[in-house]
């Protein structure tokens, strides 16, 4: 299961998750997650042949939304928390 959670793997995962970690953090997390995953190995022993994965644990009936538009009365409230804006647009570093 866990093929030694080494430093490069932890770095790769941190990049994937867009988390800037210090070298110390990486070292600490590698150690902690290694211990955690070693403990978690235990589930490999459970026989799950032909068992369908469970996501939602209760039997709920799916309900759909009717196709109707609801206009927000206070659109500015959805923009007000933005760290940077230009007019009514969100301003971000260049994406190309």
């Amino acid at each position: 299961m866990s093929k030694a959670l080494d430093i490069p793997t932890v770095q790769k995962v941190a990049e994937l998750a867009r988390l800037k970690l210090t070298d110390d953090e990486i070292k600490a997390i590698a150690g902690q997650l290694k211990a955690v995953l070693e403990n978690f190995e235990q589930i490999a022993a459970v026989n799950t042949k032909d068992v369908e994965p469970l996501v939602t644990p209760t039997d709920l009936r799916v309900h759909f939304r009717e196709d109707a538009v609801v206009v927000q009365p206070d659109l500015d409230a959805f923009l007000a928390n933005a760290p940077a804006r230009s007019g009514r647009l969100f301003k971000v570093p260049p994406v190309v």
């Binding site: 978690f40 459970v46 068992v51 369908e52 994965p53 469970l54």
Partner: peptide
């Protein structure tokens, strides 16, 4: 498969 999927199966059990 080894982690998320396996855990979701054991969850059902």
């Amino acid at each position: 498969d080894a982690y998320y999927a396996k855990a979701s199966q054991v969850r059902r059990l």
